[in-house]
């Protein structure tokens, strides 16, 4: 089942600012909502998103329950060498999702 959509350019120039788009399938249940039977729906959120490039962290986001379902995040980076991104989402109930993408920098 599809869980994450990542949009990274395949090629970039040295020092060019590129945009990375990420979309991940997750309910982001706040922990404040009441279910049909009157019970509080337990919190189930992604807490952190970390992006590394060739092993070094380049971006991190801390999410709260106020991030919408199916979290969407776009951000920027500038690279000086080709390599691989790793995208890692971690959250409640041992949620862990890791994706990778490579890019040629010339």
């Amino acid at each position: 089942m599809a869980r994450a959509l990542i949009n990274v350019p395949k090629i970039a120039k040295v020092g060019e600012i590129i945009e990375i788009k990420t979309l991940v399938s997750h309910p982001m249940e706040t922990g404040y909502r009441v279910g049909l039977g009157g019970e509080i729906l337990p919190r189930d959120i992604i807490q952190t998103f970390v992006c590394t490039f060739n092993g070094a962290q380049i971006y991190r986001a801390d999410f709260s329950p106020a991030v919408a379902a199916n979290p969407y995040l776009t951000f920027h980076t500038m690279l000086s060498e080709s390599g691989a991104f790793e995208f890692r989402w971690e959250g409640d109930n041992d949620f862990l999702l890791v994706e990778t993408a490579s890019i040629t920098v010339e």
Binding site: Y59, P65, A66, V67, A68, Y72, T74, F75, H76, M78
Partner: peptide
């Protein structure tokens, strides 16, 4: 709290988009 991002100069541009409740 809504969201916090951590970055440095290698981002090139201090901007991000997301969706919130």
């Amino acid at each position: 709290y809504v969201v916090t991002v951590h970055l440095d100069h290698r981002a090139g541009k201090a901007a991000f988009s997301t969706r919130i409740k």
